[in-house]
Design a protein around this nucleic acid. Sequence first.
DNA 1: CGGCGACTTGATACGTCTCAAACTATGTGG
DNA 2: CCACATAGTTTGAGACGTATCAAGTCGCCG
Lengths: 251, 251
Amino acid sequence: MSTTLLASLLIRKLERFEPWSVDERQSVLDAIDSTLRLPAHAHLVQEGEIPDGIHVVLEGFACGYKLLPDGRRQIVSYCVPGDVCDLRITLLPRMDCSIGTISQALVVRLSRERLQHLTVHSPRLARAFWQTALVDQAISREWLINVGQRTAFSRAAHLLCEMFLRLRAVGLVQENTCEFPLTQTEIADTLALSTVHVNRTLMELRRSGLITLRDKQLTIHHLPALEAAAGFTPDYLHLEAILDDDATPAT
Amino acid sequence: MSTTLLASLLIRKLERFEPWSVDERQSVLDAIDSTLRLPAHAHLVQEGEIPDGIHVVLEGFACGYKLLPDGRRQIVSYCVPGDVCDLRITLLPRMDCSIGTISQALVVRLSRERLQHLTVHSPRLARAFWQTALVDQAISREWLINVGQRTAFSRAAHLLCEMFLRLRAVGLVQENTCEFPLTQTEIADTLALSTVHVNRTLMELRRSGLITLRDKQLTIHHLPALEAAAGFTPDYLHLEAILDDDATPAT
DNA sequence: CGGCGACTTGATACGTCTCAAACTATGTGG
DNA sequence: CCACATAGTTTGAGACGTATCAAGTCGCCG
């Protein structure tokens, strides 16, 4: 069951630039080590650890974050269904941030060893994993710009646009609405704002008629308008290559 | 001549986690396409372009940045000697930020094709390039934390610590001082502060006796003290593995 | 019923921005 | 060799966006 999900989410995403052979698809599925069902706000990986599996989210949300000595927290990434949380530990000695769940989540662990083996023997798989990592990097950079250069209002709008498109790319948007389980505290730790100010900013977004956000459901009434308010351009997500139809396996 | 520099800077850095064979070293040198000597503030790569070579800085500084429609600029990375500016375009269709020089610079272009060929045929080389990309990603994330969570004072101190250590790792620190050719405007665009405030902040760092910064020369009088002021921990740079002695080639 | 997490609102404080203007160093053309 | 322009740095004063502190509401779960 989690195999089917992994195939439809992760593999579909990894194939976005280049389709795989049936064997390649199967070899990734064979790397599944275990499946974890986690509650909200559970720890997955601790900063500094040397875990020996990599995690892929199939349901729910997770995030990467770093804690500062004074207790402040900066969330540095979100993992939505289909995202790999910690691909980097296949090659770096230690994790440089912690990973935790946001909502209830279904996560599979892939064996680090088997994955390493795969990428050595299939350049196409290696390339695909590389590419997702590079997209993640592009997202980090965009977040830096967001936090560094935009007002609270645009910043929040930008985050909503990004999450909406990422969720839409994995089929988790119906009409104009999607699950959005982040608390205002989590949004604050993402956008580098205080919770109070996030609250006021969301209020303003609601008042302006751009969004509805209630009961962990986000509705974007007019995406182009929200994008304009955010100064959002989706290029950095490299979603253009994610196809809606079934890709035909390569030879 | 640029071959020697490339070997001593880039290859030394890429070998940080795992030494290469003589053939592997040579194959990277053979990928050199051309050598560019550039003035300060020259464009190397434009956002959105599809360049067909990747750039390695051998002398001088370069940076990656993104411009916003209103003219604001966020610098998202620095490239010091030994750094690859745009490794990602080996696998992503378009550049997602621009690259320009900060100071006069000597840059080599490696052929994208040959590099791709190398990484397919030598898993060890592939791993090494991967790893530098992952370190770059860790740096982005740390910058996000810096801009999001720290005061102007710590933020500036943090940047100075990072650059100092990165330069030291490639042998560009004598005693406690290194070249530091950034203008205050560039520091401002990096730290997401106004130029005026950067100026006051640097003044304060000077007054506190932590640094001397004059004529593009940075001296850090007591690194541990500056690190403490910055809340800086060097783990994310993964420099621990860069050796001072000559690594022996692997078989 | 009590307690806890998330959200909301108000008042005040503070860090940083913006605007404005000197001042310095460097390079250029007359 | 001077006059001038240009780029970078420095300083002052006031404005503004966001933080902080404080308190209260709502819904949910034990």
